[in-house]
């Protein structure tokens, strides 16, 4: 089983992004997804910058993919998506059917991203015929559904599951970060840069509920399927995905590395992962329950 680092979902500075991947190059991660998947206004890195990072990480032995924007609205966003798909070197993570279409036409191998709604074998067959090398399960996929998917997935198509981080749950035309700051989206001042792990949204009772990340809404709780790693391996899941955080990433990677290469997941390992975290963890989706639920 391989370990993947998903795309950075937050808006970090150029230095922070370069620093993050400089550290990641020497960490035991097998696959790295690069690029902006949330908001096209976040342009501190150009495609050339991402390609430079991709080359560095590839030289460090990683499988590198360039990810495309999830919500495509304007012609300029389509143009950027086409440039990413036709980058000439790296495979891509297609996060919208528009990107699947462009990749299929160009013969570029792609990973079918987590928001393409791959819920059944027929959809997997279609994606595989179009050139998908791997599919990422939707956030809400349960173990039961995954068993069915794995039983009849097309041969050669790898399976990837999101196992750690705040889950991206929704996308909108509206920017909720700018809304909170009373700024129009067109003059947002890139205020999401002030929130390296998003803006916390709590209920009126103070319960940590969701996280606002520009046009994206994330789970308030951290999806944590560390304990399920041995089961995922038994189900033939090929890749598990971690989602970038602004701190403790090295330790998180090491814990998961130990889990995917080791003999099992001990309580000690689990405690090491959650130690010092303020956020609650959750794993409900995997057990067919509400996503926010914590199943011990």
């Amino acid at each position: 089983m391989k370990l993947a680092m998903g795309p950075i979902l937050y808006f970090w500075s150029r230095d922070e992004v370069f620093g993050f991947y400089r550290d990641l190059a020497r960490l035991p991660v097998d696959i790295v997804y690069l690029g902006e998947t949330v908001c096209s206004k976040r342009r501190t890195l150009t495609l050339a910058d991402w390609q430079l990072l991709a080359e560095r990480l590839a030289n460090a032995g990683k499988e590198v993919l360039l990810s495309t924007l999830t919500l495509l609205e304007s012609e300029s966003e389509l143009r950027t998506m086409r440039r990413i798909v036709n980058n000439g070197g790296f495979a891509v993570e297609a996060n919208d059917m528009a990107a699947v279409s462009v990749a299929a036409q160009a013969g570029v191998p792609f990973v079918a991203g987590p928001h393409l709604n791959s819920y059944n074998q027929a959809t997997l067959e279609l994606l595989a015929e179009l050139g998908a090398m791997r599919w990422v399960a939707p956030m809400e996929m349960s173990r039961e559904t995954m068993v069915g998917m794995q039983e009849r997935r097309p041969s050669g198509l790898q399976t990837e599951l999101f196992v750690y981080g705040r889950m991206p749950l929704a996308f909108s035309a509206r920017c909720f970060t700018a809304r909170n700051r009373d700024l129009p989206k067109d003059e947002c001042g890139l205020c999401c840069a002030d929130y390296p792990e998003g803006m916390q949204l709590a209920t009126q009772e103070g319960e940590q509920f969701l996280v606002l990340n520009g046009i994206q809404t994330q789970s308030g709780r951290i999806c944590n399927l560390l304990r399920e790693i041995p089961d995922l391996a038994a189900l033939g899941v090929d890749v598990v995905r971690l989602s970038p955080r602004s701190r403790r990433m090295e330790e998180i990677v090491e814990v998961f590395h130990q889990a995917v290469t080791g003999e099992g997941v001990t309580q000690e390992l689990y405690d090491r992962l959650v130690h010092g975290e303020r956020e609650e963890q959750c794993n409900g989706y995997w057990f067919g329950e509400a996503g926010m639920v914590v199943r011990e």
């Binding site: 709604n117 809400e140 749950l169 996308f171 035309a173 509206r174 329950e289 509400a290």
Partner: peptide
């Protein structure tokens, strides 16, 4: 408010 088909807020809370 969200892109239809790309919102799982409801299942996050209710399943």
């Amino acid at each position: 408010v969200m892109v239809e088909g790309r919102c799982t807020l409801s299942s996050y809370v209710t399943g």
